[in-house]
């Protein structure tokens, strides 16, 4: 493997990893706080990309891209809050909340996906990049948008970490995830923090969708593949913590890039799944995880 090839693989791996880290951290945040999996998480990406396209593209309202991003993020945050209120909240005290919310959020995913298809059609759309042009990164030329993704992912995740670690609400969110009853007894409004968690997670999904929407083509199923990857990442990461998820995201992104290089784009996804199942056979708690729940 030449140095050139290595740097190409490495860079494409980092781009993938950054996208995965952003999308998986939102999923993981909801999991560690509420103990549920939001299968509509990927669909929120799709929704944000379409909303941003409608507001900012010439074929839509043709406004400034910033307006598109703002409206799109606001829109998915609203959608995230609706999901929590309408199809997650009714089951908080239910013994099978995990199973039921997998089904309700799966339904929400179909609802958004097919709704997008009705509204925006099946034709491919692409967002304007936030930053145009190309840059050189580690000896490989990539679009400036991809460079932006590489830079923004650690920044956003760092901010998320700071928020969860140091702010009052952020600590409250962690407390609710670790022990909701004890959180209640120190005056934390658990239900309000659940909404905030969903809103945050949706905002992350929305931003990822907008960033990715100018690199890939937006279709109604735009968010399905990242969702599946994010699911695998949280298993790899061991479901325990946001930190584990992020490490797993970067590992998986790089692994995927190398697999694509060595065994081709067709077999790479299958290999990843096979690897996942093998890992679970040896370590049922995930690669990085400790036993949880």
């Amino acid at each position: 493997m030449t140095l050139d090839a290595l740097s190409t693989v490495l860079v494409s791996g980092i781009v993938l990893a950054s996208v995965y880290a952003l999308i998986a951290s939102g999923l993981s945040l909801v999991w560690t706080t509420l103990g549920i999996f939001n299968f509509a998480h990927g669909a929120l990406m799709t929704l944000a990309a379409y909303l941003a396209w409608t507001v900012s593209d010439a074929a839509g309202l043709g406004l400034w891209l910033g307006a598109g991003i703002a409206i799109a993020v606001a829109g998915v945050v609203a959608a995230g809050v609706l999901i929590e209120r309408l199809i997650v909240r009714p089951f908080y005290d239910h013994r099978d909340i995990l199973l039921i919310t997998v089904m309700t959020t799966l339904a929400a995913m179909i609802f958004i996906e097919k709704g997008s298809q009705l509204i925006w059609g099946a034709r491919l759309k692409q967002l304007r990049p936030v930053v145009p042009g190309q840059v050189n990164f580690l000896g490989t030329t990539i679009s400036a948008q991809e460079a932006l993704i590489i830079a923004l992912a650690p920044l956003l995740l760092g901010l998320l970490f700071l928020f969860l670690r140091n702010s009052r609400i952020g600590r409250g969110i962690r407390a609710v995830g670790q022990n909701p009853n004890a959180a209640k007894l120190i005056g934390i409004d658990v239900s309000r923090l659940f909404i905030i968690t969903f809103a945050l997670s949706a905002a992350l999904a929305g931003l990822t969708g907008i960033l990715l929407g100018s690199v890939r083509m937006v279709t109604p199923a735009f968010g399905a593949e990242p969702l599946v990857k994010a699911l695998i990442i949280v298993i790899f990461g061991g479901l325990g913590s946001l930190g584990g998820t992020i490490v797993a995201a970067y590992l998986l992104g790089l692994l995927e890039a190398f697999l694509i290089f060595f065994i081709g784009i067709y077999w790479a996804p299958s290999m990843i799944f096979v690897l996942l199942i093998l890992i679970l056979l040896v370590r049922p708690q995930g690669l990085l995880g400790k036993v949880v729940r």
């Binding site: 407390a175 670790q178 022990n179």
Partner: peptide, 16 residues
Amino acid sequence: LFPDMEIMETLELAAF
């Protein structure tokens, strides 16, 4: 309490 939180963090949080 909150298994992954430190003592000081927990006490500060408790003044919610």
